[in-house]
């Protein structure tokens, strides 16, 4: 098959870029364990009272690791505030009791969709003290723009 010299150049360039992108993603996924927020964990959205989400809040797992179980609903989060010391790693496990919401901490990689019936997870280490805002960025109804919670990171 005859290929023009320039065609060879851009085919190599295109295929090379694809291989590069896939290699970076593959290393991130398999060597560093990065994965999407959905871990295929499920919960009965109509019966959260009888699930691990019956008492949402913060649990300490070890010295500087916490698990935050949070229920997103129209138009807020339960609990509305959590407080952790600086340097803590928080594993967020979030579900929704009604419609699709999101759980977004602006300026961080914590940004995930919250779907009823599923438990989505994200992890973040709070190295800077201060007040962090959590927002919903999936339009969920008339009060969507009021939907927020706070994370207080104490020194």
């Amino acid at each position: 098959m005859h290929l023009h010299k320039y065609e060879k150049i851009w085919l190599i360039f295109g295929i090379g870029s694809l291989v590069l992108f896939l290699a970076v993603l593959g290393v991130a996924a398999f060597a560093f364990g990065q994965q999407p927020p959905s871990h295929m964990a499920k919960v009965d959205a109509q019966n959260l009272e009888e699930s691990v989400f019956s008492e949402p809040g913060l649990d300490q797992i070890n010295e500087d690791t916490y698990r935050a179980r949070i229920v997103a609903m129209a138009f807020g989060y339960d609990p509305g505030t959590i407080e952790v010391p600086v340097g803590s790693t928080v594993i967020f496990e979030v579900t929704s009791s009604d419609v699709v919401h999101s759980f977004t901490i602006p300026g961080t990689n914590v940004n995930m969709m919250i779907t009823p019936g599923h438990v989505n997870m994200a992890e973040y280490t709070f190295d800077e003290p201060g007040e962090y805002l959590v927002l919903c960025n999936e339009y969920c109804g008339t009060g969507h723009h009021y939907m927020q919670m706070k994370i207080e990171v104490t020194p």
């Binding site: 023009h4 320039y6 065609e7 150049i9 851009w10 360039f13 295109g14 870029s17």
Partner: peptide, 17 residues
Amino acid sequence: SLKGTLIFVMFIGSFIL
């Protein structure tokens, strides 16, 4: 001539990269 095509393909490709 494919010169223009090459330049444009490389321009778009570099932008994506």
